[in-house]
Simulated scan of single mutants.
Amino acid sequence: MNYRHAFHAGNFADVLKHALLARVLTYMIAKPAPLRFVDTHAGLGVYDLTGDEATRTGEWRDGIARIDAAAVPPALADVMAPYLAAVGPRGADGAWRSYPGSPAVAQWVLRPEDRLTLCELHPEDAEALKRETGRDPRVRVLASDGYAALNAVLPPPERRGLVLVDPPFEKTDEFDRLLAAMLRAHARWPTGSYMLWYPLKNRAAVGRFAAGLARSGMKRVLQVHLLVGDPDAGPLAGCGLAFVNPPYVLKGEAETLLPWLAETLARPGQATEWTVRWLAGE
């Protein structure tokens, strides 16, 4: 599959990924020591929802626009608050014009003493990311392969932080590359926290990836899956996240969040499904 993100910004997968990203970072900054956020496939930073790519697909209308139109249940107010604050309000005329990528979400949540290392292989996207984040002294942009960059940036000087690995899944062996990168990164920095995104299209590949994480020897691995429609029909309808060393409260909060997301983001006439489970530890 091709997942050039400008076509998909603000869709259901972004809602899940960024809501949990903002929540994890919020928990991490509760401790006074500074931290490092590493994004291996950072993209543009901010996406134009009026541009050609987003207009062509309109996926944000069934993602962030539905969240905006829904009433967040009181039980989820604290869980969703960091994400909604990072996304920000619509324009003065009520129109959606942009959506933040993971770097912008992290920039919003993190403190002045924290640092961000953002990797982007695509030259034009890397330059756009530099322009978008250029005035933020906390940010360093690396125009390089994010998998390879992990060898150079881990462990970070801060010795605490979060690594987000969010590949485009343009290669048929991406699950193998993702697992291998995770194992190498964990060997270099076993106390770090990790967040891995993947699509739910190839069930056999997802199963092999999960099995690899489960038998890796990593002590705490949490898996989260969300399907908003039929995974075998039409555009991407499901995605997963694997968390290594997540905050202890994340499982309970995800179990509260995902049923509401499934209901709010469901595709008409299609069944939804969600899963939150430990692959290792608990």
Results as ranks from 00 to 15, higher is better:
Pro156Leu: 07
Pro157Arg: 15
Pro157Ala: 15
Pro157Gln: 15
Pro157Asn: 13
Glu158Ser: 13
Arg159Gln: 12
Arg159Thr: 10
Arg160Val: 07
Gly161Asn: 01
Gly161Asp: 03
Gly161Leu: 00
Gly161Val: 01
Gly161His: 00
Leu162Trp: 01
Leu162Tyr: 01
Val163Gln: 03
Val163Gly: 02
Leu164Gly: 00
Pro168Val: 06
Phe169Pro: 00
Glu170Asn: 12
Glu170Trp: 09
Glu170Lys: 11
Lys171His: 14
Lys171Cys: 14
Lys171Arg: 15
Thr172Asn: 15
Asp173Pro: 09
Asp173Val: 10
Phe175Arg: 04
Asp176Arg: 10
Asp176Gly: 12
Arg177Leu: 13
Leu179Lys: 07
Leu179Ile: 09
Met182Phe: 13
Arg184Tyr: 11
Arg184Gly: 12
Ala185His: 02
Ala185Tyr: 01
Ala185Thr: 02
His186Ile: 06
His186Pro: 11
Ala187Gly: 14
Arg188His: 14
Arg188Thr: 08
Trp189Thr: 07
Trp189Asp: 05
Trp189Ile: 06
Trp189Tyr: 06
Trp189Val: 06
Gly192Met: 06
Met195His: 06
Met195Arg: 06
Leu196Ser: 02
Leu196Trp: 06
Tyr198Gly: 04
Pro199Gly: 03
Pro199Asp: 08
Pro199Arg: 06
Lys201His: 05
Asn202Tyr: 12
Asn202Val: 14
Ala205Arg: 11
Ala205Trp: 09
Val206Cys: 15
Gly207Ala: 12
Gly207Gln: 13
Phe209Gln: 00
Ala210Cys: 14
Gly212Met: 12
Gly212Ile: 09
Leu213Phe: 12
Leu213Cys: 06
Arg215Phe: 13
Arg215Met: 15
Ser216Asp: 10
Ser216Cys: 13
Ser216Gln: 11
Ser216His: 08
Gly217Val: 13
Gly217Thr: 14
Arg220Lys: 13
Val221Arg: 02
Val221Gln: 01
Gln223Trp: 04
Val224Leu: 10
His225Met: 11
Leu226Trp: 01
Leu227Asp: 03
Val228Phe: 04
Gly229Gln: 03
Asp230Met: 08
Asp230Pro: 05
Asp230Cys: 11
Asp230Gln: 11
Pro231His: 05
Pro231Met: 08
Asp232Leu: 13
Asp232Pro: 08
Ala233Glu: 15
Gly234Pro: 04
Leu236Ala: 05
Leu236Lys: 08
Ala237Met: 03
Ala237Phe: 01
Gly238Leu: 03
Cys239Thr: 07
Cys239Tyr: 06
Gly240Thr: 04
Leu241Glu: 01
Leu241Met: 10
Leu241Phe: 10
Ala242Ile: 03
Ala242Met: 07
Val244Glu: 02
Val244Trp: 01
Pro246Gln: 10
Leu250Gln: 07
Lys251Arg: 14
Lys251Cys: 11
Glu253Tyr: 04
Glu253Cys: 03
Glu255Pro: 03
Glu255Met: 13
Leu258Gln: 00
Pro259Val: 02
Pro259Gly: 05
Leu261Ala: 01
Leu261Thr: 00
Ala262Val: 04
Ala262Arg: 00
Glu263Asn: 10
Glu263Trp: 05
Thr264Pro: 04
Leu265His: 02
Ala266Ile: 04
Ala266Cys: 07
Pro268Gly: 11
Gln270His: 12
Glu273Tyr: 11
Thr275Trp: 00
Thr275Met: 07
Val276Arg: 00
Val276Ala: 00
Val276Glu: 00
Arg277Glu: 12
Trp278Asp: 02
Trp278Met: 02
Ala280Thr: 03
Ala280Tyr: 00
Ala280Ile: 04
Ala280Val: 06
